[in-house]
Structure formats: structure tokens, C-alpha cells
Design a protein around this nucleic acid. Sequence first.
DNA 1: TCCGTGAGTTGGAACGATCCAAATGTAACC
DNA 2: GGTTACATTTGGATCGTTCCAACTCACGGA
Lengths: 350, 350
Amino acid sequence: MATESSAPVHRKTTLSDIAAGCGVSRATVSLVLRGSPLVNKHTRARVEEELRKQGYVYNRAAANLRRRTSSSIALVVNELSNPFFAEFAAGVDETLGEAGFVTLLGSTGESVTREQAVLGSLIEHGPGGIILSPAEGSEARDVLSAIGGHLPVVLFNRELGGRLPQYAHWDRLMLDNQPGARMVTEHLISRGHRRIAFFGGHDDASSTRERHAGYVQAMKAAGLPIEPHWRVQSTPTRIDAVRATPALFEGGSMPTAAVCYNDAVALGLILGLHQRGLQAGRDFAVTGFDDIAEAAMSVPPLTTLSTAPRARGRQAAELLLARLRDPQAPASTVIAPVELVVRESSCPLS
Amino acid sequence: MATESSAPVHRKTTLSDIAAGCGVSRATVSLVLRGSPLVNKHTRARVEEELRKQGYVYNRAAANLRRRTSSSIALVVNELSNPFFAEFAAGVDETLGEAGFVTLLGSTGESVTREQAVLGSLIEHGPGGIILSPAEGSEARDVLSAIGGHLPVVLFNRELGGRLPQYAHWDRLMLDNQPGARMVTEHLISRGHRRIAFFGGHDDASSTRERHAGYVQAMKAAGLPIEPHWRVQSTPTRIDAVRATPALFEGGSMPTAAVCYNDAVALGLILGLHQRGLQAGRDFAVTGFDDIAEAAMSVPPLTTLSTAPRARGRQAAELLLARLRDPQAPASTVIAPVELVVRESSCPLS
DNA sequence: TCCGTGAGTTGGAACGATCCAAATGTAACC
DNA sequence: GGTTACATTTGGATCGTTCCAACTCACGGA
């Protein structure tokens, strides 16, 4: 509420202009606009003609104010330049649009501070709900205080830190992280790898912890040891993954393969390896998570777990719409399955 | 009475609640919210305490109604799943956010019909302006009637069909299409290619026509003939480019290289070539336009024209903000330069 | 003639903020 | 004490829509 910024709006034609223009009351015009069966069809025709003539544009904000409703949904994602989130956003917008809602976009760049600011700003525009993919390290309490009050929320991709008060029953759409990571780790093991690292992401994000747990599970089940320096953390972006690559090779026994937190990180690792003279898919096996479009086109093509982000976007929107229809329904947690897609980056141990 | 275990659905707190809560008038609270110097500092402290205590959330919609202003901007792009537009959107949102505006997202999927619908829906939410990347074949008249009236518009990437009435002075942010396409065509010629095709896009989009013109210019300047079947049109998506690939080879003299409308199309062509047993970058030279992140990672890495989409997004937002600051300023047309990035897909003629 | 009925229409009070002119209180000056 | 000046505060109208109770009017039945 501190930042004061606004654009002047040209004088638009209103309900009253239309009413005056064809000699009926505002109430009647309002009924016509909403397609009420109460109005006489001749009156309706006259009003509709006038609406066209004056180029009337419905003022949904005013209507929402009076009706105490909302026709927008806030979508807060980590980073639109990650194709995973771009596809997700496209899916959300598609479904919301069909349902007559408009999408308020916000992007956090994985920063908790920005997340707070973005939520605070979006909330003032009165969205009917929020679809939130939390930034790493985001706390339930902070999010709750930023959205101040009881607004439907769908969490995507990650859990929040801390505990929610029980009155806030938020819906969740999560990926099948642990089984997925386990599956891809087993895939590497079946290709002969024994020294496998887990690369990228920060452990304060639930999705990272789950994927890491799946990896540990597979390693333990196969009776393989895990060296501490095989866990290298990074921001889940390509650029930071490149930077973090050397850490993989600083300990004693060097890994021959890495399970990466997501595709962005995996693509960064491929570059980082290249800078050390190692070729992914030949000298070192790499796997990702998400199956963004780029994964199929990279050099080498990336073995990864397909999450169908666009479908997930539609699903998240559906969850929120369902919640708006029935605010009392118990909170639901949906876990979307993932599918192993084997490509050339997960070469056998040579 | 036993306590019901339902969510406490309490009304949102308003200015009046705060006013009542600390015994001042609504007007005073309003002044505090807007940081007016008129209020006494003790009063201010009291009010701010009460705001915090009641968890007040500013209702910007109500304020905008009264003040006849807007604090949102509509962003309409063709397809968020194209990283070029995703990056562009990220840039727009970033800059608008800093300026205190919120982004209303809409996506057209390159369909003129959906564009009309999306504009119609967004406009009802009263944005202060529109940033529009028109769908192929979109007409000025249709857009104008959809947004009904005088709303600042920034056109990005493409011109609209038809002519605008002169009272609508819209700003433009275009790419340096023709010189760029000419540059990349000359690059192919310098590598020994003589039979060069122009692949993808539809000629009813201005950006396509401009890029095609640059290609024709380079070919003519080099005295090279152009076969009609070297112009293959497609929707500017990867998938449709794959489908359109065979048409390149249906005429008599087969091309050895293709200048593509954009990177998405180029990546599709690479796949399409692969399906015919041809390897791009070895058997056939391919170039793109945009330099999306994927271009550097594809097999082979793509020679293309860098457009820095994120920076373009920021720039488009700046143009709109400038227009809001000074509605009377003459319409500006900015042409963003592009830069040739040579990678391996533009192999010499073998 | 009177009344009931139902279809169609309507005026005015909301919604939650802002604007504006006017009111209040206090101190300073003659 | 009376007047002015200044710093603060305030009631009520207003933005463009919707809600609601009440109104009009034509028609049919008793």
C-alpha cells in the first residue's frame, strides 16, 4: 500500500449512459447485461443496440466490489524463464480463462523476500485465490501473513516450511518426487554405476528433500555407500549449476553419475562438465527431473522424469476452481505421477 | 453452544473497521495509508498499530474505482510455452512489478479468435494499458473494437493488419527483422550455399514478411535465383515445422540450407530433417531467429539472431509506463537491434 | 367494480475506497 | 479578548455496479 502508482483512465461509458441513452433505468440495463430472463425482449433488444452503439465496456471491478466476488486468480511462480514453470503457467492460464477468470501473474525469482512483496501486491487486487509455487525456504507463517486472511490457496511443487494453523486448509498439487528419484537412481544403478551423486537444489525445499530421499533409498536398497561430498547444493538454475559443478570432484572418490534436482540443473551440469573436459553421456551420466522441451534437444538428450507441466497447470487451476465451488470441502493433496524417459545422457558405466 | 469446526469465515476488514477501532474518521485512515504528511504522528502511530492488529488488506479495486485509475497492465502473448515469449513475459512482469503494477496475463495460441476473446475479457478488468504481441493475421480494426476506446497499447514483434485510425497512436517495439534476416542469409551465402530456402511462419504476419524480405534482398544482391517451392509456410511452432519439412524437398532443385522464421521453427526443421535421414549442421544448414536458451543447447547448436527477449520485455514495459506518464507524447516506434550468433547448425556447403 | 396475479421495471442504498470543502482546536499576535 | 493563522480532522458525496423491496400495468375472474 506504500507504493503509489496508477494510470489515468479515459472516461468510459457506463451503465447510466446506456440507461439514459434508451430511456430505461440502470437496473434494467444491468439485468440485460447479465442475461436475466426478467426483461422484456423488446427492451432487451433496444438496450443491446445501445450498448453496441456506445461501445460499452463492462466494469468488472465495480461489479466485484458490489457483489463481493472476484474474477481473478493470482499465479505466483518461481521463474518464468524456466520452461517448466512457463508451461505450467500456460496450463493454468488456459483453464482459468475458460472458467472466466483472469490470471494475475507474479514471479519470485526463488527469493523469499520477493515472494512476500509479490504476494502483498497481488493480494491488494483482490484475487479469488492463489496458486503458489513457493520459493525455496518459504515459510507457512510468512505466506499466511502476506495474504492476510482466508483466501483459497493451492500449493504446487513444494511444501512450505513451518506448520500451518489448522484453519488454513490449503490444497496441494505435488509431484511424485521420492519414487521418481528412486526410479531414476535405480536406472543408473542398472547401467552399472556405483558412485552416484545427487546434484543441485537446496535442502530447505521440500521437493529437494523428497527427491534426495528417493535417491538415498535406491542407493541403500542396492547396498551402495554414499559419500558426503556427492551431495552438492545449488540454486535450481542452470547458471548456478555450472558454478557448482567443480564441488562434485573435490572429494576423494569421484562419482561417475549424478541424479540432478531438475532439468535446469542437469543442463547446467552438462555445461559444467564440458568446461572440465568431460562429456556428459559418454564420460559421465546425468539425469534430470521435469522433462522440459529442451531436455529432448540437448547434447546429449537428457534422461529425465516427465512431469507434463502444462497438464499440471491445468490440474492446479482445476483444484482451485473446485475449492471456490465448495469452500468447505476437506483439503485435498494430489500427487501427480512422473514417468521415466530414458535418453542418451544416462550412458552405461564405461 | 458447541464450537463448530468450520473455517472462521470472517469479513475482510475495511477502512471503516480500522477507523472505528481507533476512534478516528475513515478519511484520516485513508490519509495514513497513503502516507500523507497531513496527519499527526501520534494519530498515525495509533492507526498503523490498528492496521497491523486487524490484519488490514488494502482494497485497490475500490480505490481505483473512486480515483478512476488503474494499477494493472494486460500482457497478451502468443504462446507462453515458446521460451521467447516466456522470457519476454518475465521481463515485462519484472519491470511492471517494480513500478507497482500487476500483470494480467493472456495467451492467444496464435489464434485471432482467441485473441479477441482474451482481449475482451482482460479489458473488463480495467487495465491501464496493453502490451500486445499480435497473433498472425490479427487486424487493427478488430483489436481496436475489442479494447473499445482509448487505451494505451504497445505492439510488440508484429504489426497489425489493416490501418489504424489516426487518433489511436500506439507505440511499437519491433525487432530489426529485415536487416537481421539479410545478415543471416549472407552468412549462409558466405559459407558457400547457393540454394537457400526460407522456412516457416505465415506471410500474413508482418514479422514474417520483413524477415522474408531480408532474405530476398540478400539473395538478389548475390545474384542468386529463388525457387517458389523454397518458401514453405507453417505456424511458427516446432510441431508444425516438423510437419511442413517435407514440402522443402518436393520441387526440382533441392535447397542445401534454410533461413527459418524463428528458433522454434528451426528446431522443428532439425527434427523434420532427422526424420528424413538428414543431419542438420552436416547435410543441411539451418538458421533461426530469437536465440532462445534452447538454441545454444540443441543438436547441433543453432546459428541464430539474438534478440534478448527478456530485455525486450523490460523495454516494452518501459514504453508503456512512459506512455502512461505522458499520454500526449507522439507515438514512438523502437526497433531493437539483433545480433548474429554463429553456431554449428550453419555448416559450410559440403 | 374490485381484487389478485404475474410480468416487467425501478429508485435508492449498498460495496470500500477517495475527494473536497468545511469544521475543529491551538497558539500567536495586536 | 478578539482575530488570524496554521495544523489536523471530518462528514458526505462519489466512482460503476448490484441488490432489494416496492411499484406499475394489463388482464382475467368473481
